[in-house]
Computed example of a mutant assay.
Amino acid sequence: MSFAFAVAAVFLLFFGLGVRRDRRRFGNAVLLGLAVTFLGIGLIAGIDDAPPGVAESVMVVALLVLGIGPVVLAGLLTWNGVKMVRKEGRSPGNLLSLLAGLGMFGVMALAVSAAAIQSWTLRIVVVTTLFVLGYVSFLFVCFVGYAYLYGRMRIRRDADYVVVLGSGLIGGRRVPPLLASRLDRGREVYERLAAYERRDGDAPVLVTSGGQGPDEELPESHAMADYLVARGFPPEAVVREDRSRTTEENMLFSKELMERDRPGSSCVIVTNNFHAFRAALSARRAGVNGQVVGSPTAAYFWPSATIREFVAVFLQYKVVNLGICLTLILLGALAWASR
């Protein structure tokens, strides 16, 4: 028990150092997840020393969570996926929560079949699948947990720019609700920064960042700026970055613009809450001195969007992550061949 607590303390120390160095690192999420995991192991190991009745209650709750939790989660994901398709259409990104829920039901059915058939091969397949899913699920929980913490950072007061990231337009020219949420949040951040007393005396600038897609009549940044100005935002405080097509290009081209006008400047980047942590990782890779904040998103949209964000981050570290998954699969194959 004390060993687990000691390991948790070490990981927590490294987590604190990592956050102090740069909060925009996925490694921070993993270190926090490992610290919490070993803390949980230590608590479980010491359950025998708990007052009478506590150990039994904890075991009952744990069994309920392990037994019923996956079924409930799979059902909720499937239900959310159906709702997502009805509201947003059948694009691959909108199907993610539905596929995740159906996939969980599939794994559970496979496990039941392996127990009923008594097949060695099927058992190895199930165990290997659970190990791979366990690894991916651990990273997913780390991602969601740290993204939640990152999204609750205080907004810096000394930023020179507010950069609002674009998204697709409706009908090729109108701002959709998702993007309107970002713009409203960006205006709120701008007004908060403008209210602070600045040492250089210069007012902050809001950058709308987004190029023109093949199905759009004008660059997203222009539609975004028009949306703000039509609602009373001062036009002289808006700068349009109209070349970017991806989040990475949002960062790079906005950085060029900021460095051109105010070298060494800092910024607050605004996107939707589900996208904030991945955008922070992109900002770090692009060398942007910026904090990312999120705007509200409809609850039904969050599961599929979060899964999509996690997949993108998972593949950013594909050498390590796919290497570990392939190693687990190889170990399963060796266990099957050794019989």
Rank of each mutant, 00 (worst) to 15 (best):
M1D: 07
A4H: 14
A6S: 14
F11T: 09
F11D: 03
G18Y: 06
R21T: 02
N28G: 06
L39Q: 08
L39D: 00
G42W: 12
I47K: 04
P51Y: 13
V54E: 00
E56T: 15
M59C: 02
V61I: 15
A62E: 04
L66A: 14
T78V: 11
T78L: 07
G89K: 06
S91D: 07
A100W: 00
G101I: 09
A111E: 08
A114T: 05
L130M: 13
G134C: 09
Y148D: 01
R152D: 00
M153R: 15
R154Q: 13
Y161T: 13
V162D: 03
G168H: 11
I170S: 05
G172I: 08
L179A: 10
R187Y: 11
Y190K: 08
A194R: 15
A195D: 05
G211D: 00
G213K: 09
P214H: 06
S221T: 03
H222D: 05
D226R: 15
R231Q: 02
V238F: 12
S244F: 05
S244L: 11
E249C: 09
L257Y: 09
R260C: 02
R262T: 10
S265C: 03
C267T: 12
H275L: 06
A279Y: 07
S282Y: 10
R284N: 12
R285F: 00
R285T: 04
A286Y: 01
V292W: 00
G294A: 11
P296M: 14
W302K: 14
A305N: 04
A312L: 07
V319L: 13
N321E: 01
L326R: 08
G332C: 11
